[in-house]
Design a protein around this nucleic acid. Structure first.
Lengths: 223, 223
DNA sequence: ATCATATTCTGCAGAACAATTGAATGAATA
DNA sequence: TATTCATTCAATTGTTCTGCAGAATATGAT
């Protein structure tokens, strides 16, 4: 009654992958891993989970072949297994959610749309405007995430320092801000804060992982 | 500790959607629903599940906003909620699985590749070859699924009748066969059977739902 | 309106599985 | 060896799957 054919075997495996996505904590872990590799310690701090629990969730993601560990020094670093496909899977999940789940549209409207009334800038748009040098790209993620990879030429001002470092942002140029992904609040908050100060600023659709997964050029500064 | 912000609320909802995908039976139900709407009765017969169990699983899919019911006559028909996005989500899931999960590659190699050594024909390829009239398209799904929608101009010979109806297939023309999707065995078996008889036949990548989700033209014959 | 019928949904119960934490164990370095 | 980081274990609690039986709902005929 179980394996009537190859289809059942494949669906059993795919179900395991899907089930690994089926927990909010794991989705958040994947969001963080989308920025680049992270140790268990770093992940547990960022996701505000206990150490043991983080490890357990990572095991589940690992068994589902969504992430892979590799040891370096004392730490075990995890990264997305084939990040393009995984990021695209998460994007597809988000699209279904945004289209079908009323709760999600509601939250998006309540929280996000209030801070950025206008449509986000598409990746394609940003790319052409970048080539023409007409726009300042602002990366509001923490500096360590920035250094793991970012949009070429982007200026990194972590959200926490934004108020103090306004001088670095030319008010006469248009700004496009981005952060971790479609559900990360950083770039929404940046747009709200800078709009209030008179900047012409828009949000990039999604975030850095999706930019990279789309095959667009990235830059790695840190090391 | 739960809703520290809008992100948590969204990930909670998305996790519910993902979890609904996290069971082999539900993936199979979605495969069938990808062909078009079906009643609970039809679905339970096709998926070989008990009635009650099918109903249960459909509830879960419904709560996750992946399917929607509507009543017509005595039956409750279910269909994919926004079929394009859902089919694309399943495609993305499949891509991750095929790339990352060894078990899936193994089954694909063992069972599927053995029956169709060559690469499948891409949708784009088939579309141009269709326009030039250079190819016969063969739909090997059951007739009722065919009548719910199919590739324009396709010839429907259900797998069960293939041996008897060989006369309808011109041996001198190239044939492209398709069925329900990437994990449906029908078109693989058709390729194996017809290759053995000297036909030049290839498989279309994926199946009908993916063709439709790609925005390509479809035809509805039945009624 | 009411009844009989066909179809679908829900409650129950048992088994199996998943999430969480703290404690114990393992692995790698200094 | 001691230290640091990660995994696994033990135990608790909660959730999911499944079949069965019975309840709910809609239809169509009376």
């Amino acid at each position: 009654m179980s394996s009537t054919g190859p289809k059942q075997a494949i669906y059993a495996s795919l179900a395991e992958v899907a089930q690994a996505l089926g927990h909010p904590h794991r989705l958040e872990l994947l969001e963080h891993l989308g920025q680049g590799e992270r140790s268990v310690e770093e992940l547990s701090a960022r996701a505000k989970l206990t150490f043991a629990n983080t490890s357990r969730h990572l095991q589940i993601l690992r068994r589902a072949c969504l992430v892979e560990p590799h040891r370096r020094g004392k730490h075990v670093y995890y990264h997305l297994a084939g990040d393009t496909e995984v990021v695209m899977l998460l994007q597809a999940l988000g699209r279904v959610g945004e289209r079908n789940v009323a709760e999600i549209s509601r939250v998006m409207a309540d929280y996000f749309r209030a801070r950025d009334a206008l449509e986000p800038v598409s990746r394609r748009d940003l790319l052409t405007r970048l080539e023409d040098g007409l726009v300042t790209v602002l990366d509001v993620r923490p500096q360590d995430e920035f250094s793991l990879g970012h949009v070429p030429g982007a200026l990194n001002i972590p959200m926490a320092q934004l108020e103090k470092r306004l001088a670095e942002l030319p008010i006469e140029r248009e700004i496009v801000a981005y952060c971790r992904g479609p559900y990360c609040v950083l770039s929404f908050d940046a747009v709200a804060a800078l709009r209030a100060k008179g900047y012409r600023i828009h949000r990039l659709e999604d975030g850095y992982p999706e930019w990279k997964a789309a095959g667009l050029p990235v830059e790695t500064a840190g090391q």
